[in-house]
Amino acid sequence: MARIIVVTSGKGGVGKTTTSAAIAMGLAKKGHKTAVIDFDVGLRNLDLIMGCERRVVYDFVNVINEEATLNQALIKDKRCNQLYILPASQTRDKDALTKEGVGKVLEELSKDFKYIVCDSPAGIERGANLAMYFADDAFVVTNPEVASVRDSDRMLGILSSKSRRAEQGDEPIKEYLLLTRYSPARVKLGEMLSVDDVQDILSLHLLGVIPESQSVLNASNSGIPVILDEQSDAGQAYSDIVARYLGEDRPHRFIEEEKKGLFGKLFRSK
């Protein structure tokens, strides 16, 4: 049986798709067969971030409507043979998704894959609800600002009451916090909530902090999941997150401002 992970947030623009791409790639690179599904029907982005937008023939909605088989729609990643992408349809909207249809696709994927990463759309409507409904684990992506934290809190409420696990009275979804676009310097200036502030509000297990980084934008624009940029702080942060999720004990990084030595100041990287 596969483990189904939903990457969700409530609020838009916090880094759900970047995170989905990074952790799916991270899990696959660790040797686990992984599928990543774009639930953002109508506003598909995952294929861009994964750099496979020119290879999309069939999509998630085609599979749900039985116009194509799962194998026809799954796109195999060129960099990692353990990773497959199921893109969203750009010409449809979220009403094209049905609970039965999504359930069937996930069940079929479960036979073959170790991890299924569901990239949730923003909001708390149909697309987001279906992305989290079947989940076993939830990665709640939050930016260190009040609106994002509030929306994540709302999403956590929905996760604990409207998921399949909640409805069937099973063990609840495991919830993890991913704090993205974190800037210790701005926290110091009081312009941003600190890790502790966010933890105080959400009281959630912190899986990792991803620093605000130019490398994320560069990676998105070039269609390479940022985790593959091993030199970048964001890439390393995602590697840590995948390792921690798989049970490794790694100390948290990027929470404190980096103290740069003289050379660091002179040859400032990224």
Binding site: R150, D153, L156, S160, L202
Partner: peptide
């Protein structure tokens, strides 16, 4: 004994 989330 679990947090009561926003919207609940």
């Amino acid at each position: 004994n679990t947090p009561v989330r926003s919207g609940q």
